[in-house]
C-alpha cells in the first residue's frame, strides 16, 4: 500500500513547487529594491555634500547651493509626476475603451498614433508646445505627456487583452455585468502589465523633463542649461547626475507601488 501514485502525491509536489518559487523569488526582488534605493540616495547625498563643501566661484555658488539643488529636484519631481498623472488620466480610460467590443478595431491605429508621440524628438514636441501655448510649466507638462503616453496606452491594451478569455467568460457566465467584469476581473489581472507601462513612462518623462530648462519650466534641466550656456562643467554634471539619481528613485518608487498594487495570488 505504499506505492506513491495518485493525485495526492502530485498535489503535494504542486504545493511545494509553488511555494518555493514564490519564496525563492521574493528575496531577490527585495534585494534589488534595496540596492537601487541605496544607489540613488548615495549619488544624491554625494551631490549635496559636494555642493556644500566644494570651493565654488560666485557664479557657480549661485547655481549650486543646497537649497537650490533641493528646490530644483523637487520641481523636477513635480513636473514628472504632473505629466505622469496626465498620462494616466488619459491613457488608462482610452486603453480600456480600445479593448471594448466595437472600439477594438481602432486599437491598432490609435496605438500607432501614440507611437508617433514617442518617435518624434522630445525637444521638437516641447518647442512646438512652447511656440503655440507659450513657455512655462503647463505647456511643457502637456508635451511631456504626449511623449510618455505610448507605453501606458500600449500596456493597458496588452494587459487587458492578455487576460485569459476563459476567465472573462467565466465571469460573464456567473452573471457579472460587463462593467463589473472589467473592474473586478480584467483590470486587477492586468495591473502588473499596466504598472510596468506606467513605470516606463515615468522614467522616460523624468529624463525628458531635463529639457524643461530650455523652455523656462524649471526643474533640474535649469542646471544643465546654465552649465551649457555659461560653460560651467560642474554645474552641468551636478544637474545631469541629479536627474539620473531622481529617475532611478522614481523607478524604485514605481516598483514598490507595482508590487503593492499587484493582487496577491498572481
Amino acid at each position: 500500500m505504499s506505492i506513491a501514485t495518485g493525485p495526492a502525491a502530485t498535489e503535494d509536489v504542486a504545493d511545494a513547487s509553488t511555494t518555493t518559487t514564490a519564496d525563492g523569488a521574493a528575496p531577490m526582488r527585495r534585494g534589488r529594491a534595496v540596492g537601487q534605493l541605496v544607489a540613488c540616495l548615495a549619488v544624491f547625498g554625494a551631490l549635496l555634500v559636494y555642493v556644500a563643501v566644494a570651493d565654488l566661484s560666485s557664479v557657480e555658488a549661485r547655481n549650486l547651493s543646497t537649497t537650490r539643488l533641493l528646490t530644483l529636484s523637487w520641481q523636477h519631481f513635480l513636473l514628472a509626476m504632473a505629466a505622469a498623472l496626465l498620462v494616466i488620466v488619459l491613457a488608462i480610460p482610452l486603453g480600456i475603451l480600445l479593448t471594448r467590443g466595437p472600439m477594438r478595431r481602432f486599437s491598432t491605429p490609435i496605438t500607432a498614433v501614440a507611437g508617433f508621440g514617442q518617435a518624434a524628438p522630445a525637444i521638437g514636441l516641447i518647442v512646438i508646445a512652447a511656440l503655440y501655448f507659450g513657455t512655462g510649466r503647463f505647456p511643457f507638462v502637456c508635451a511631456l505627456a504626449v511623449y510618455g503616453i505610448l507605453p501606458v496606452l500600449a500596456n493597458v491594451v496588452t494587459g487587458i487583452d492578455g487576460v485569459d478569455p476563459r476567465l472573462v467568460e467565466a465571469a460573464r457566465g456567473m452573471g457579472m455585468s460587463a462593467f463589473s467584469t472589467l473592474v473586478r476581473v480584467e483590470l486587477p489581472l492586468a495591473i502588473p502589465v499596466i504598472m510596468t507601462g506606467v513605470r516606463t513612462a515615468l522614467v522616460l518623462m523624468t529624463g525628458t523633463a531635463a529639457l524643461g530648462g530650455f523652455v523656462n519650466a524649471g526643474g533640474l534641466g535649469t542646471l544643465v542649461n546654465t552649465g551649457i550656456k555659461l560653460g560651467l562643467d560642474n554645474v552641468l554634471i551636478v544637474g545631469a547626475l541629479a536627474i539620473a539619481a531622481l529617475a532611478l528613485f522614481i523607478d524604485w518608487l514605481a516598483r514598490i507601488i507595482e508590487m503593492a498594487a499587484t493582487p496577491k495570488g498572481l
Binding site: R166, L167, A170, G173
Partner: peptide, 9 residues
C-alpha cells in the same frame, strides 16, 4: 468550465 476558471487574484 474546463480548468475551473477560478479567478487567480
Amino acid at each position: 468550465i474546463q480548468g475551473a476558471g477560478l479567478f487567480p487574484h
